[in-house]
């Protein structure tokens, strides 16, 4: 796999980095432009200003949406990873008819167009009182976080040396004990990776977010960005939106910096040994 560096590879690497990073730098740059500087038609601000950050953090729409997003994305991620871990263990480890079907169902559901679910969910939620609540988003988020976690985890679990569990069972442990004492520590990195990926998806959702919420009570960040009014600001809220965008991008950058190897492995199922 190791090959000598061609000039093309280096050039390619530089191009990739420029391509991937420059839109992010652009939105950072926009967020530092105050007032009419937004419309300077240049990449960089004429004058650095933190005014937009002041604005977004004093805007209830944004601060509450940040809270909602973190809470809703975390809860739906935790729930689905918990359920998926148990199921993926069974699929990877146990022999029972129908497990292929389970994975097929998960795959089909992961491909489901979210918009198709939105109408009926809205209609149901408004009658049972889940409209514009956290739970009203956590449930539909499971429609993609759960199959995603199931797939990632069952792929990870295939790589785990199950002999150790066999050994534990030989020593008299029940399957449940063996699972808990031996497998869980081995599986933890995979579970963690599945959680990161599921979190990205839940953090990113827009369709459910705009359709099933309507106030600060449950509206997550992507929806808040789309409905940003900049409140008591006179200019178009482009600057404030950019600042808010930067704030919600920073966690993504941190996660990527800390866990790039795991995320790559999660997406490619460890086929690439970093």
């Amino acid at each position: 796999m190791k090959q000598r560096h061609g000039a093309w590879t280096v050039l390619g690497a530089i191009l990739i980095m420029v391509w991937a990073i420059s839109p992010v730098i652009w939105i950072f740059s926009l967020s530092f432009k105050a007032g009419d500087d937004i419309n300077n038609n240049r990449f960089w601000p004429t004058q650095f200003s933190l005014e937009n950050y002041d604005t977004v953090f004093s805007t209830a729409l944004f601060t509450s949406s940040l809270r909602n997003s973190i809470g809703i994305a975390l809860i739906s991620t935790l729930l689905s990873v918990a359920i998926a871990t148990v199921a993926a263990y069974a699929i990877a480890r146990l022999d029972f008819p129908g497990k292929r079907t389970v994975l097929s169902i998960a795959l089909a559901i992961a491909m489901f167009p979210a918009v198709s679910l939105v109408g009926p969910l809205f209609n149901t939620w408004r009658t049972v009182g889940l409209y514009d609540t956290w739970l009203g988003l956590i449930i539909p988020y499971m429609s993609f976080t759960l199959p995603l976690s199931l797939w990632t985890l069952s792929a990870f679990f295939k790589e785990i040396p199950w002999e150790m569990e066999e050994a534990a069972q030989m020593d008299g442990a029940t399957p449940w004990q063996a699972f808990r004492k031996v497998i869980v520590p081995l599986a933890a990195p995979g579970v963690f990776t599945a959680a990161i990926l599921a979190f990205f998806f839940a953090w990113n959702d827009f369709v459910f977010a705009i359709s099933l919420t309507s106030t600060n009570a449950a509206r997550p960040v992507p929806a808040a960005l789309a409905f940003f009014t900049g409140e008591s600001q006179f200019q178009q809220p482009a600057g404030a939106i950019s600042a808010a965008a930067v704030v919600v991008t920073i966690p993504v950058i941190i996660l990527v910096l800390l866990f790039q190897k795991r995320i790559v492995a999660g997406l490619t199922n460890g086929a690439v040994k970093g």
Binding site: L61, F122, W125, R126, T127, G129, Y131, D132, S214, T215, N216, A226, F227, T229, E231
Partner: peptide, 22 residues
């Protein structure tokens, strides 16, 4: 006070959806 979106159509949309949920 709770601020509705910028656009008149979107404001109506938000309110109708809540009101339809009584």
């Amino acid at each position: 006070t709770s601020v509705l979106p910028n656009d008149a159509t979107a404001q109506r949309e938000q309110l109708v959806r809540r009101l339809a949920a009584q």
